[in-house]
Structures are given as C-alpha cells and as structure tokens.
C-alpha cells in the first residue's frame, strides 16, 4: 500500500520557481493497477520519481507498506529500491557498457543470486518481452523500442512488489505495447503486484483499475475503471 500525502515539488531555477507538483495526495492499494495520465509537463514523471524513491518532495509524506520512506537514510532507500521496487524510466536508463542480459541481471547479482539462477531468470524475462535474440546486444545496438523493453525486463526481473513504469510503451508499436501490458496485467493478477504506470494512450485505460489524471501538478480527476480481472491477464 502506497500512501502519498500532499506532495509538492518545487524546482528553483535561479529566481524562477517551477511548481511541478502542487499538493498531490494519492493512495494505491496493494495489487492495484493505477494509470497516471495528463498532458506533457503535468508532473507525472515527477510524481513517479518521488514514489520510486529517486527524488524527495519539497513537502508532503510518502508511506509505503507503513514505512515512512522519506525518513530513511540514503543507504536504506537504495536497499528499498533494490528489494521492493521495479522502475521503468521514461528514457530507459540502460547501462551502455553492459549487454541487454547484463543490464537485466545486474540487480540479481547485487541480491546475491547464484549465477544459474540469475541467468535463467533474466533470459526468461527477456524472452517474455520479445528480446530472446537480442540478449547480447548493447544499448547502441538496440532500437529505441528494444531498449525500452530491456528497461522493462530489468524492472521486472526480481518480481518487485511495486512496479513503477514511466510511459513504458512510448516507443512500442501497438501490438508490442499490448503484449507488454498483458504481461503487466498478468503479474498484477498472479503475483498481486502493485503497478503505477504513466501513459498517454487512451486505449491503455482498459488495463487500469483506476486512472489518475494530473494537470499542472494537481490531480484533476480520479476515475475507477474496472473491478473485474482483466481478460488480457489470462493470455
């Protein structure tokens, strides 16, 4: 369960203040699949960064499963990201020196997995995002959409209890997007993963339990979409 209370984020650039978030409160229940939508510059990434412990709000509070994550030391926050969160960056954020496979298994290595275990798991998740034949490619040898899918695989490989994805399908064709969303839906249902996903696409709405729309750093509307398990989840 994620509880965000009254989050603000103000960027100070010289004398100009940019208010990226103007007081956002949001609760995401365990196992929920929440979509965050809104115009470009409305604060979606900013919100996700804060929920993903990558940034600190100017004010407000974030509790995840009862832990006040803003009160944690940097070291604890790092461990929290490693063990509890999966994050898909809007710009993929792959390590250029590493191959697709290495990018994916790096965090398993940190978690102390055995070689056989992390190789098998990483290869498996790469196959599931359709990159079975691109495992040894480095970032410079992958298309934008392929890089995006490596980023998705990296976020999913440890079965995190919370997945935060910032426009994970921005560079994918609709068929590939659908297969990724189906994968998310399945993890959401089978493993009860909490998913918060930023999206621009209207048709993605059919996957979300709830849609939060941001506008100028504030929640403009919040819509419950469906209660029933999504049919694509069974695929």
């Amino acid at each position: 369960m994620i509880v965000a209370e009254n989050l603000t984020r103000v960027y100070t650039m010289g004398r100009v203040e940019v208010r990226a978030l103007g007081g956002v409160s949001l609760e995401v229940a365990k196992g929920e699949f929440v979509g965050i939508m809104g115009a470009s510059g409305s604060g979606k990434s900013t919100l996700l960064h804060i929920l993903g412990l990558l940034d600190r709000p100017t004010s407000g509070r974030v509790m995840i499963d009862g832990t006040d994550v803003l009160a944690l030391s940097d070291h604890r926050r790092t461990l929290f990201r490693l063990n509890r969160l999966g994050y898909v960056f809007q710009d993929y954020a792959l390590i250029g020196e590493l191959t697709a496979l290495e990018n994916v298994y790096l965090t398993s290595l940190v978690r102390g997995a055995s070689k056989a275990e992390y190789l098998e798991r990483s290869a498996e998740i790469l196959r599931r995002v359709g990159l079975g034949d691109r495992m040894d490619h480095r970032q410079s040898e992958l298309s934008g959409g392929e890089q995006q899918r490596v980023a998705i695989a990296r976020a999913l490989v440890n079965n995190p209890s919370i997945l935060l994805a910032d426009e994970p399908c921005a560079n994918l064709d609709s068929q590939t997007s659908r297969s990724i969303l189906d994968l998310f839906a399945r993890l959401n249902e089978d493993l009860d993963q909490t998913i918060v996903m930023v999206s621009h696409e209207d048709w993605h709405k059919e996957y979300f339990c709830r849609i939060v729309t941001l506008r100028d750093g504030l929640i403009e509307e919040m819509v419950e979409c469906r209660k029933e398990p999504h049919p694509h989840g069974e695929a």
Partner: peptide, 16 residues
C-alpha cells in the same frame, strides 16, 4: 555520471 546515477537508481549501493 549518468551510469552511476542509474546504478544508484536501480538499487546499487554507493559503496559498491
């Protein structure tokens, strides 16, 4: 710098 930021973001400790 970017790579170091990414490593930290995905949960790799500074000391590592």
């Amino acid at each position: 710098r970017r790579q170091i930021g990414i490593l930290k973001a995905i949960g790799i400790d500074q000391q590592i």
